[in-house]
Amino acid sequence: MNETALWLTAVFMGIYQGLNPPIGWLRAAGRGLETRSERAILQSTGSLAFGHFLSMVVLLVPVAILVAGLPGLVIPMGVLMRAAWLISFGLIGFGIYKLIRPHHPRFIVRIKPDQVLRWSFWMGLTHCGSAVMMVPMLINLTMVSAMAGFSDSATQRMISDATLALTMSAAMTVPLFLTGSVVALAVTRRFGIGAITRYWINLDLGWAAMFILMGIMGVAMG
């Protein structure tokens, strides 16, 4: 699988989540209808996307640093490959579980309705699993870059791998923000919140399938 396809996948996942009402735009549209303020809408979609971004960064950056190798802790390539492979199987299993039981973890409903960023962070980290889906990809990409730049210093590798993790997170969450904002504005200005009962389909099922697909890709790459 080439790298471009991988980046496109991340962008596609961002757009998909931007379209999904709870993840991308619904709270923002609700705020917009209450306040009639576009600023409030963009603040909400911004919080949703930024929470999601943080949920990816907290997992992907440490993984990238571990893969690059810390002083005194260099994980052998074979172990890394095996880990990526196991995580991929885990993704397939989690996707099947989400098909059967598509609910959010219970603790998330206890987050207060105005804590949008916190809500989005925990959703991203658990239910959405955007970060964990990208882990096998990240490991594989960093190994490719390690082979290309084998003469780099440990610090250089760490910086380039962490940058890769950040870029990967942004590649998903910037499209999420843009899509979510467009939908939230359209719903507020034109369609009304009733649109969700007409046009909204169960995107959670597709997302569960995405876990399985990413898992299969990870297994295939390993």
Binding site: L99, P102, I193, G194, I196, T197, N202
Partner: peptide, 17 residues
């Protein structure tokens, strides 16, 4: 059963209900 659409009796607002 797996639902593809929200329940038709989900009303986002009082007016829609």
């Amino acid at each position: 059963a797996l639902q593809m659409k929200p329940d038709p009796t989900f009303y986002p607002t009082a007016r829609l209900a």
